[in-house]
Simulated scan of single mutants.
Amino acid sequence: MSKKFTKIYQKHYDKVHRLCLGYVNGDQALAKDLAQDVFIKVWEHLDQFQQKSSIGTWIYRITVNTCLLFIRKDKKKKQLSFTEIQDEVQEETNDQNRVKQMYVCIHKLKQTERIIILLVLEGLPQKEIAEITGHSHENIRVRVHRIKEKLTKCVSNGI
């Protein structure tokens, strides 16, 4: 099982890490911790994977659940004010500025919207996103369009 797990880890770690980044507003260290938690769960439950979906879809579902659980717990802690985030963004270079701004805008989205757009940014097909989120493909198609409009407006207007 360890060789199988190693292959799964190597194939999916970068995608899981990037997805976690979206949930933690670009915090690299926290994203790495969450990705580690995801793969601990994958290791613990790999023998229970029923292959009703692809292994990637299963891992994304674990990632989304792990990140949402973290966010629920983290809401009890003090969050950065928009002023503090804005100050950090202004210190970055222009490219880093836009990336940071995009994460802030993604962070403002509703939970379901955030899940959908992060999976889109990972390059997942909309049909697979529908499977992961439990929505219809048509619903995902419409939501993606609306989410992109919101993000464009948010990034254009600044934080």
Rank of each mutant, 00 (worst) to 15 (best):
L34T: 08
Q36K: 09
K41H: 11
W43T: 07
W43R: 01
E44T: 05
D47N: 14
D47K: 13
Q48K: 13
F49K: 03
Q51P: 00
S54L: 04
I55D: 00
G56W: 01
T57P: 07
W58P: 03
Y60I: 02
Y60N: 11
R61V: 14
R61M: 04
T63I: 07
V64A: 12
V64Y: 00
N65L: 03
T66K: 07
C67V: 09
L68C: 09
L68A: 02
F70W: 14
I71K: 14
K73Q: 15
D74V: 01
K75N: 06
K76V: 08
S81T: 10
S81H: 13
F82I: 05
F82P: 00
F82G: 06
D87G: 03
E88I: 05
Q90C: 07
E91Q: 11
E91M: 11
T93W: 06
D95V: 13
V99C: 02
V99T: 15
Q101K: 15
M102I: 09
M102A: 14
Y103A: 02
Y103S: 06
H107G: 08
H107F: 04
H107L: 06
H107I: 00
K108T: 14
L109F: 08
T112M: 09
E113D: 11
R114S: 13
R114P: 04
I116N: 00
L119D: 10
L119R: 11
L121S: 08
G123I: 03
G123E: 10
L124S: 08
K127I: 08
K127V: 07
A130S: 15
A130I: 02
E131P: 00
